[in-house]
């Protein structure tokens, strides 16, 4: 079959896999995004004793292959089957999708925590002192000064992390989740036509490219006060485009 035939025959599967890849990536990244700000605060403000388990966790996640982490959770949970059944969690761990999602969320939490920690440490101390001087409470300072600036600093690195997670999500195919990689392998084992891999590569590149564009737009928005002219210009342009 020629490459076009492969695509026209198997596009529903590839589309299905693509959606699964996006779902895994976004859900994993979102769960991590909810958990990591709190952990990053602990990493910057808590005492060394509270930090110790967190540092161990981050070091472990960064020092082991994500495939090994996935196997540890997916196959490893089988060793505790009676216990998990007792707690009613066995149904959760039996599903490879859940295990993959849990692995990716745990993995991304560690990376995002470290990235955000860098962002928080990068906030100039003068800004925090100024917030204190005008009488903001600690919580208000976090909400209005520290986190907005920390996210602005961390934004590009967070984007990189989401792309890395998207690439890592292809590993879910190894535990029989039918993401894009899983579907691709399925089609290849059926047809032995190499071109399906090239289509998969193209789709992965497209996902990355679209994400990079969206992320950059968001970055411009986050820092529009730093370069107001450019922001106004782009708004004028889109305004004119809609008027004409």
């Amino acid at each position: 079959m020629n490459p076009i035939d492969i695509l026209s025959t198997y596009w529903p599967r590839l589309l299905d896999g693509t959606l699964m890849t996006i779902k895994l990536t976004l859900m994993g990244a979102l769960i991590a995004a909810v958990v990591s700000p709190g952990l990053a605060l602990i990493r910057t403000q808590a005492g060394p004793l509270v930090q110790a388990p967190l540092r161990l966790y981050v070091s472990f996640v960064r020092g082991t292959p994500i495939l090994a982490q996935l196997f540890l959770i997916f196959y490893g949970s089988g060793q505790f089957r009676p216990l998990l059944q007792e707690w009613g969690l066995w149904g959760f761990f039996r599903d490879p999708f859940n295990c993959a999602l849990l692995t990716f969320a745990l993995n991304s939490t560690a990376y995002q925590t470290e990235i955000l920690r860098g962002g928080i440490l990068g906030v100039p101390s003068g800004e925090i002192e100024a917030a204190k001087a005008i009488g903001m409470t600690r919580a208000k300072t976090m909400q209005r000064v520290i986190f907005p600036h920390a996210y602005r600093i961390a934004w590009p690195a967070l984007g990189n992390e989401v792309i890395l997670l998207m690439k890592a999500s292809a590993l879910a195919s190894v535990v029989t989740v039918f993401d894009l990689m899983g579907r691709t392998r399925q089609v290849f084992s059926k047809t032995f036509d190499f071109s399906v891999y090239l289509w998969a590569a193209l789709i992965y590149l497209c996902i990355t490219a679209i994400f990079v564009i969206v992320w950059r737009q968001a970055e411009h928005r986050l820092s529009r006060h730093l370069n107001p002219n450019a922001w106004e210009r782009s708004k004028d342009k889109s305004l004119k485009a809609t008027q004409s």
């Binding site: 690439k167 292809a170 590993l171 990689m181 190499f194 891999y197 590569a201 990355t208």
Partner: peptide
């Protein structure tokens, strides 16, 4: 750009199956 955007496992399969074929 291309190599950094692809999952490593996809590259591995492309090489393993592609070069094999």
């Amino acid at each position: 750009t291309v190599m950094r955007g692809l999952p490593e496992i996809l590259t591995l399969f492309v090489v393993y199956n592609g070069v094999g074929l």
